[in-house]
């Protein structure tokens, strides 16, 4: 995958295509395949958090099933009227941020180069650049790459499945 990503002169179709908004965002970058790969790796750290209803209900009046003390606090504060913007700001402040945001905030790049830090402890790229390729459909060794999206497949059968289901969906 990486060899065709690094090549800036890769021929791209000039045709305009109808694409979903999420795809449009992915395609807007110069090398969308790397972006997709990074997004996918980030997804591997995700948890299944269920439907995101809990957060939305949080500042509703109807949230009686929340912890009681929270409810009481809200009642006391109720005298002062809050604008929506203030509420949104407060929620943003209270909301847990993920580690990458905290990392960015810590500004570790500014440390002098001899200080070990989170960023410098990463193991770094592998010494050998040759990669094994596995079929994204069945998992066996693959010899072919999808010309459209760069994912791997091993046979015509797998190619068909790939084309039907996840070609250009950007989940390797």
């Amino acid at each position: 995958m990486e060899d065709d990503v690094s090549n800036p002169f890769r021929r791209m179709s000039m045709r305009t295509r109808k694409i979903a908004p999420k795809m449009a965002a992915a395609l807007a970058s110069s090398d969308n395949r790397t972006q997709a790969a990074i997004a996918r790796l980030e997804a591997l750290e995700n948890d299944y958090t269920g439907m995101e209803t809990v957060e939305a209900v949080d500042d509703d009046e109807a949230s009686l099933d929340d912890d009681d003390d929270v409810y009481i606090q809200k009642k006391q504060k109720g005298t002062k009227r809050k604008t929506r913007q203030a509420k949104a700001l407060e929620n943003a402040r209270k909301a847990p941020r993920n580690f990458l945001e905290l990392l960015h905030e810590a500004n570790l790049e500014a440390l002098p180069p001899h200080v070990p830090s989170y960023l410098r402890a990463a193991v770094g790229p592998p010494s050998s650049t040759c990669r094994r390729h596995f079929c994204t459909v069945c998992g066996f060794t693959s010899n072919y790459t999808c010309a459209k999206c760069g994912m791997r497949f091993c046979s015509i059968r797998c190619q068909k499945i790939h084309d039907d289901t996840r070609c250009l969906k950007f989940v390797a």
């Binding site: 995958m1 790969a37 996918r40 790796l41 591997l44 990463a122 193991v123 770094g124 790229p125 592998p126 010494s127 990669r131 094994r132 596995f134 390797a172």
Partner: peptide, 9 residues
């Protein structure tokens, strides 16, 4: 990890 597309040894 490279099999996963990760640039790590």
């Amino acid at each position: 990890p490279a099999d996963l597309g990760m640039n790590q040894a």
